[in-house]
Design a protein around this nucleic acid. Structure first.
Length: 288
DNA sequence: AACTAGAACAACCGCCAAAGC
DNA sequence: AGCTTTGGCGGTTGTTCTAGT
């Protein structure tokens, strides 16, 4: 017994969309709006799966989509964000106006993964391609804000996660678990940490729960002394949360909240703040 | 000009979480 | 509370394009 398919496959068109199909879809969505994807093909008169319609619209037909010619600036940002977020393409796409998760994923798989792999082999702690002059330039100048295209956001617009380097995750997990058990019904620690060591820098903590807990201060003991750098994959980077200390403390979390940094305690994840954050002096120092 | 291999890109698939009932 | 439906995500596959021989 398999899962029920999203739609009947018989009699449906597959493969590349024709200009006529695109027009029908655009006209229908302009008239009736997005949503109800399962019923949309029938109502619009398309011989396509609803999922296929949704994908076509979100990735290619939607207004504001940029196609092709991913710039060096964008590549640099993708690499940095991938370093932080792993294969969370929708989150990465959310930071690149006009780009879709599918395009970024394809570009990564065909270009950037190899590039990064090569650079990692050449120098394990350097993620930027320093042989290219434009990357040199980026070190001194902030990446331009790309405001002329809307950010393509699909589902991944909420984030209740805290970025932690892998060596600290396990330590924090045990602390956080006790916080969770005694305090919150919503906090949780992602078990994916065990299965995806390289990319999972994110622990599923609800920051408010941690801050409100009497035990939050116990988290301090997980982290290295102030000013001590964290040595971890893929490079040494300094955690940004507490002055120049390179360590996370509960008061650091508190300050982060007050400063309205990217991970807001109301659960919303602000990518513009993240971009500013990446550009700022407090960012993870990926180039060291 | 014809063929081939690899790159690039579009689309599909299965799984999952949230929403609705 | 539990089941169903819907929408979204990331991995993967299939097709087209392009450069090299």
């Amino acid at each position: 017994m398999g899962r029920r398919p999203c739609c009947a496959k018989e009699g449906l068109n597959r493969g590349i969309w024709t200009a006529g199909e695109d027009k029908i879809l655009i006209d229908y969505i302009q008239a009736h709006g997005e949503g109800k994807w399962r019923d949309l093909p029938q109502r619009a008169g398309l011989k396509r799966c609803g999922k296929s319609c949704r994908l076509r619209w979100l990735n290619y037909l939607r207004p504001g989509i940029k196609r092709g010619n991913i710039s060096m600036d964008e590549e640099e940002l993708i690499i940095r964000l991938h370093n932080l977020l792993g294969n969370r393409w929708s989150l990465i796409a959310g930071r690149l106006p006009g780009r879709t998760d599918n395009e970024i994923k394809n570009h990564w798989n065909t270009n950037l993964s190899k590039k990064v792999q090569d650079q990692t082999h050449q120098n394990p702690v350097k993620l930027s391609n320093e042989s290219e002059p434009q990357s040199e330039m980026l070190k001194e100048e902030s990446p331009p804000r790309l405001e002329t295209h809307p950010v393509i956001r699909t589902k991944a617009i909420r984030c209740t996660r805290v970025i932690l380097p892998p060596p600290l995750l396990d330590q924090v997990a045990s602390k956080a678990t006790s916080v969770h058990n005694s305090n919150s019904e919503t906090s949780s620690y992602s078990s994916s940490r065990q299965s995806n060591l390289s990319s999972d820098f994110l622990a599923n903590f609800n920051i408010d729960d941690l801050l409100m807990s009497d035990q939050a201060q116990n988290l301090d003991s997980c982290f290295p002394p102030e000013g001590e750098k964290v040595d971890c994959y893929p490079s040494n980077f300094t955690l940004p949360m507490h002055d120049d200390a390179g360590c996370i403390r509960s008061e650091g979390l508190e300050r982060w909240r007050e400063d309205d940094e990217p991970f807001r305690t109301n659960g919303d994840f602000d990518f513009n703040s993240l971009a500013s954050f990446l550009d700022s002096d407090d960012r993870f120092d990926l180039d060291e």
